[in-house]
């Protein structure tokens, strides 16, 4: 039981995909202009992670080793297509805002990485918790980045005006701002953890 908890929480903290492993950056940066977009992308990616991890873990004994990567990709792509179609039908606005980054979840290194490193070796329950932990960690990181960008770049949070009499810093709404925020965040986290270690 303890081990399962560990599988869940490592994705949020010590092995956070974005801040620690520096994986899955394209969507994290491209869609994080607003909290709503970030949340949508986070949930979509979590769903794909969960689905593909479960299936891969279930059939892991039947996949020949040589062609495992193509098999993983097909399974992942199936779930991505499900998300793509569902999003187009039920959240067309979000689908438009996320654009080509929804199909690109297929090549999100986190998803394939978890399939290769975890789901094809472990049982279903552990893989599920691993996927959930990674997904939550990813979503959390996205929320953090998009909250900073939306607040500084637009003065709002979830669309509500927070900072009044504030000239929004457009830089954070544009591409360079995303790179800057993630650079400073990773640097800051490194700094904090090095401090904790030495203390």
């Amino acid at each position: 039981m303890k081990k399962l908890f560990k599988e869940f929480f490592k994705g949020i903290g010590s092995e956070n995909p974005i801040f620690r492993l520096v994986l899955g950056l394209c969507p994290a940066l491209a869609v994080s202009t607003s909290v709503v977009n970030g949340l949508g992308m986070g949930i979509a990616a979590t769903f794909v992670l969960l689905g593909s991890n479960i299936i891969i873990s279930l059939i892991r004994k039947f996949i020949p080793d040589q062609i495992r990567i193509p098999c993983f990709i097909v399974i992942i792509a199936t779930f991505v297509t499900i998300v793509e179609l569902a999003m187009k039908a039920y959240a067309p606005e979000l689908s438009k805002a996320l654009g080509i980054f929804v199909p690109l979840i297929v090549v999100n290194c986190i998803v394939l990485g978890r399939a290769e490193a975890f789901a094809c070796k472990e049982d279903v329950l552990a893989s599920m918790l691993d996927a959930l932990g990674m997904g939550v960690g990813f979503t959390f990181a996205l929320l953090l980045i998009s909250a900073i960008r939306e607040l500084l770049g637009n003065g709002t949070f979830l669309g509500f005006l927070i900072l009044k009499n504030f000239d929004p810093i457009l830089y954070f709404m544009l591409a360079p701002g995303a790179l800057l925020v993630i650079g400073l965040l990773i640097g800051g986290i490194n700094f904090l953890s090095s401090k904790r270690r030495s203390a």
Partner: peptide, 9 residues
């Protein structure tokens, strides 16, 4: 990584 991101920015 952090400085690489800042330069990229």
């Amino acid at each position: 990584a952090p400085i690489a991101f800042i330069i990229a920015s």
